[in-house]
Design a protein around this nucleic acid. Structure first.
Lengths: 264, 264
DNA sequence: GGAATTCATTGCGCAGAACGCAATACAGCG
DNA sequence: CGCTGTATTGCGTTCTGCGCAATGAATTCC
């Protein structure tokens, strides 16, 4: 009886119960007595005590004072930090980014979608004296940067809508700002389609005169961009489909995508 | 076999083994195959599979793809965050952090030492439009971030050794990556000394071009860093010893150090 | 293209382990 | 001094997890 809880996880029964208790501990606001934890986890106190003894031994839990309450221990922190670090694709991508930049001799940057738009969070210079005014935290334009276009093509429409609106409005006010784009919803849709079909976004000298850029997304399991990796250089040939730079970039993003967790 | 493992935990045997496997997963650098995990935990693969099934059901682990590798899941992150928030001063400090950020008009963040390195656990933005994605879980570099340097200066050598090694190696491969540091053990020792003498670590535009940062430790009773508080801003003057920001940061850290959890 | 190796995954039966119950120990408190 | 509230622990029963080995599947190698 007892409840709908009966999920057949297929694993170890005792372990399921124990983990439920662990999560119950995590859900509680603070240190709690054994009975409270047992009640919260819907487990008899004696069992809870056994489980807690194991958690104690593993460092996942600690008991305060003498005959006191239990709470999560340093092992839980360490475990969580390991999990968090693992889920942070920015760091991992950043590590490999240096190699990618070396390989292509281009400057690389990683951007994520922040509240203000596509935000640069890492960048890796090479020997190439690419002189730009952008740094970490720069938000890239949605319509006339490779980075922005990649987000446009691989993001859910909702989050980027407001930014898209304002950029479209600005583009409409200044015709010729974006030569290769029809600044209408239809034109945007067409561009989006083209970018997706191509597998990457490219601009030449649009956002920064004299420089070319290619950008590809790091996708999560929902096929949405969690981040965009961009390569910036001066060689016009690098932006053509099939070029070494494009191939390297896409390989890189595919690798990162595989390791990307979905949720946070 | 009765290896020397002699239990002594007094808890549930299967749970002990399972938790050992969980910690083995955490210790591994990234996603791993079942066999690898089983080997690392010194557990037969079939048992490992049962345990992992339970971890999977509990959300503590995730398997990538279909027949893919296992790694820690979102539940592990949540657990760790709960643990950190719990037995830690982080919450308390986080409340005061807002005030500190207001006072100095800088972005603040709190980092703790995880297995992967200095891991950001809280951050408080001000109006500075930066670092949108540097958030929970970002691991900071040891050598070229103020946060990392503060850990370097006030941590026991052992835990950070591996990270230090790899960063030194990378720094040696890329001269000029860290302009103000001699990437040798001697150079590190010197920097460490200087940071300790100064009472805080500072970088200007190193980890994040265009931004400056200062970091000071929250010490425990062993004079080791429990956490590091970092302020990030754009004003170059803020990183000078004796500046308002530095003073405020140090006062803040001293206060937090006093409140070290008197657990024992 | 076929075969062999290396994985992850899963039945099955037995032994050992965990569970429930209830007794114990200990603290605070009337 | 006894009562009530904890946490903790024996003990016997039975249920469950474990080892072994077969299966399925994917990748590699020839």
């Amino acid at each position: 009886m007892s409840d709908s809880d009966g999920n057949g996880s297929g694993g170890v029964r005792a372990l399921d119960a124990a983990l439920g208790l662990l999560q119950a501990m995590a859900a509680l606001p603070g240190p709690a007595s054994l009975s409270d934890i047992a009640r919260a986890a819907n487990v008899p106190p004696s069992r809870a005590h056994r489980y807690l003894a194991s958690f104690l031994a593993a460092g996942l839990a600690e008991q305060a004072g003498r005959s006191g309450k239990y709470d999560l221990g340093p092992g839980a922190s360490a475990l969580g930090l390991a999990a968090i670090a693992r889920h942070d694709f920015v760091n991992r991508a950043a590590e490999s980014l240096a190699a990618l930049c070396d390989q292509t001799a281009m400057t690389g940057l990683i951007a994520v979608w922040g509240t203000a738009g596509a935000t640069v969070v890492r960048w890796q210079r090479t020997r190439m004296p690419v002189i730009t005014s952008m740094g970490l935290g720069t938000t890239m334009p949605l319509l006339n940067s490779a980075t922005g276009r990649a987000f446009l093509a691989w993001s859910a429409p909702a989050p980027i809508l407001s930014v898209l609106d304002s950029e479209l409005r600005r583009a409409a006010e200044t015709p010729g700002l974006i030569p290769d784009l029809d600044a209408t919803p239809a034109g945007v849709a067409k561009m989006k389609e083209q970018v997706r079909a191509q597998g990457f976004a490219a601009v030449e000298g649009r956002f920064i005169p004299g420089l070319v850029a290619i950008a590809a997304p790091v996708l999560d399991w929902q096929e949405e961009a969690q981040a965009v990796v961009t390569l910036v250089g001066t060689d016009t040939g690098a932006i053509l489909p099939g070029s070494d730079a494009v191939t390297a970039l896409q390989t890189f993003c595919r690798q990162q995508s595989l390791r990307t967790p979905g949720r946070r």
